[in-house]
């Protein structure tokens, strides 16, 4: 196929420019990859933090088994509640003893179990913001048989703010990195196209349609972007192996992440060459019409 042949000819005859473009793309993609890794880890972290958010409802001491069952059913039926786990007085004491560890002997001094039974109320993700938490807590608190409600209001509010800021910063960074990658890559490709503008001119002269003129440049861009993406993700993988051994399971890398670096590279090459070549296509120049009269 002519377009493919021209693309490979273009790459091999303009090795230096091809290498420069490849380098710029590689660097952009490498940064993009680092950004992706941080984002994935950021969301992982947020998820872990949010998992801990729950409402604990302490029960009055004198409830019968039936009353507890009814309460559990009522709470489960509230919107946003994923799961209700009953923690009996005995279990609460066991847990407390575990948490105290060596100091658990202190408990031996107690004659009765001072800890109340409780429900651990797990919520769906979208109900973990401060407003919904407060709302739900109030509803549970109003039920007969509930002694007290706890969900770490202050902590939840801070967590919510931090998450919003982090996600916002991450989003802005992502946009900046993507746009600047496209900008830098498009400009680099523009240089390579500029070096071959005579070829474009000749093609237009001999009556090539746009498909034939743009095609080879697009294919070149896609090939370079794909290769740059592959190398960048290879290097990222190497770095991951290096750090994973030292940082434990904190850094999470998935195959999708490497694939998205390669895909982004390919798209980058495509968009970059598209923008650049279009600029050199000569629209037939209409002579300028004098303004005014």
């Amino acid at each position: 196929m002519f377009i493919l042949k021209e693309a490979f000819r273009g790459l091999s005859k303009n090795k230096l420019m091809a290498v420069v473009t490849f380098g710029v793309m590689f660097f952009s993609l490498f940064i993009f990859g680092l950004f992706l890794i941080s984002t994935v880890n950021l969301f992982l972290l947020i998820h872990k933090a949010e998992e801990k958010v729950q409402i604990t409802a302490f029960l009055q001491d004198d409830l019968s088994q039936d009353e507890i069952e009814v309460l559990k059913r009522d709470i489960s039926s509230l919107m946003g509640v994923k799961e209700v786990i009953f923690v009996s007085k005995q279990e609460a004491l066991e847990k407390f003893r575990e948490e105290l560890g060596e100091d658990s002997e202190l408990l031996e001094a107690l004659e009765t179990n001072p800890l109340p039974a409780s429900f651990d109320i797990k919520l769906y993700e979208s109900f973990k913001d401060p407003d919904n938490l407060e709302n739900l807590s109030n509803k549970v608190d109003a039920m007969i048989g509930i002694e007290e409600i706890k969900y770490g209001e202050e902590w939840v509010k801070i967590l919510d703010r931090v998450i919003k800021i982090l996600v916002g910063v991450d989003l802005i960074l992502g946009i900046i990195i993507s746009l600047s990658s496209i900008f830098v890559v498009a400009n680099t490709i523009k240089l390579t196209v500029f070096a071959r503008r005579d070829q474009i001119e000749i093609m237009e002269l001999v009556g090539a349609n746009n498909k034939f003129i743009i095609g080879p440049f697009l294919v070149e861009g896609i090939i370079e972007g794909f290769l740059a993406g592959a190398v960048a993700s290879g290097l990222l993988f190497g770095i991951y192996i290096f750090f994973a051994a030292r940082l434990g399971d904190f850094i999470l890398l998935t195959r999708e992440l490497f694939i998205s670096v390669i895909i982004f590279g390919t798209i980058l090459g495509y968009i970059g060459s598209h923008i650049s070549v279009k600029r050199y296509l000569r629209a037939p120049i209409g002579a300028e019409i004098p303004k005014g009269k």
Binding site: R282, P284, G286, I289
Partner: peptide, 8 residues
């Protein structure tokens, strides 16, 4: 003539 330019 080869329409690289259009008349005003």
């Amino acid at each position: 003539m080869y329409m690289d330019l259009f008349p005003t």
